[in-house]
Amino acid sequence: MSALASILIIARLTLREAFRRRLLWTLAGLTALLVVLTSWGFSRISEASPITGPVQELGVSQATVMLAFMFSFVLAMTAVFAGSPSIGPDIENGLLLAVLARPIRRSEVMLGRWAGLAGVLVVYALVAGYLELGAVVLATGYAPVDPLTAPVYLAGQSLVLLTLAILFSTRIAPVAGGAMAVVGYGLAWMAGVMGGVGEAFNSDVLRGAGIVARLILPSDVLWRGAAGALSPSEGVLQLAGVNAGLYKFSPFSGAAPTPLWLAWCVAWIIGALGLGIILLSRREL
């Protein structure tokens, strides 16, 4: 039987566990609650300040990006909490001993775990993201630049953090690994902000630091993509009297990542999984 079949066995097992442990139901319930609250909140914003011009549109766009930021944070935490205990505890409590005594490789177990959790996160990110954006559009009439791709970027960001958490899980205790992944996520976001400042003030040092941080952990690349997709057009910024250059200074601004950066994100995930497989294969059971 192929390696793919082994990976699918573990991925299905992971999905069943997520379902049985009520992770899916919890996410579905929270999503429903979030959509209701989003609809109510944005309808109040729309009542208080209907979009009649670029200034009001700018205001709604910023609220939308803030909503997306909150959602990206929830996704990031979900990815970390789901990924951190995915390998190490199963080794320590002996659960993997019986599994790995079967004709299955450690790499297949790890990739199966990743695939199962990635499936949960991607579906959650897309369904919840589109529902929330739909609620905003219906409540306010605001049309972001590229609303369809924003949840895709957020799903990608959650995959980066899931991969990081699983990588740590091969060697580090869940609490420590989870904390490290959260800190990494925060630092990457902050480095992105500093990189934006570097762009705004033409500082090579800050710009370079931002690039290095994104190379080390590209989660912020994808967050910026989502933020850019939900931002107003440059025309709206100009009409609202906002300097487009200074707008980049905002931690809640962004732009679609270049194909090179997107390729790096994919390569980073593959590389981190490869490193995780090496670390796991060398770990004593």
Partner: peptide, 8 residues
Amino acid sequence: YLPELFRY
């Protein structure tokens, strides 16, 4: 195989 540390 029945491991010494059995857990399912």
